[in-house]
Amino acid sequence: MTVYILCFVLFLVGLYGVITRRNLIKIAIALSIMEFSIFLMLVLIGYIDGGLAPIVDPDLAGQIYVDPLPQAMVLTAIVIGLATTSMLMAIAIRLYRKYKTFDIREIKNLRG
């Protein structure tokens, strides 16, 4: 159980960062941290004690394998995480060129 709770604490740290930080780069980092905690949570749920990695050896029968379904889902989610992070970085560098700051309050205040 402690692993699940620590995982959720990591999620809360990311949420805290998204809420309190004003720097766009810090917000992107906090979003990545939230993503990581969710990946770890899903893989933890699919773990089986004494299970092998999900690569079947055709000669051996009757082995226990860990659950391949959460791993496949997380595999797609990791690549989507890369896509969203690079998209955020593109938005951040574009906003920096226009406003000369990463502060989201200043960006909100300056219009036009």
Binding site: A53, I55, L75, T76, I78, V79
Partner: peptide, 8 residues
């Protein structure tokens, strides 16, 4: 399809 890894 044989070892860890794949397209991604």
């Amino acid at each position: 399809h044989l070892t860890p890894g794949g397209g991604f």
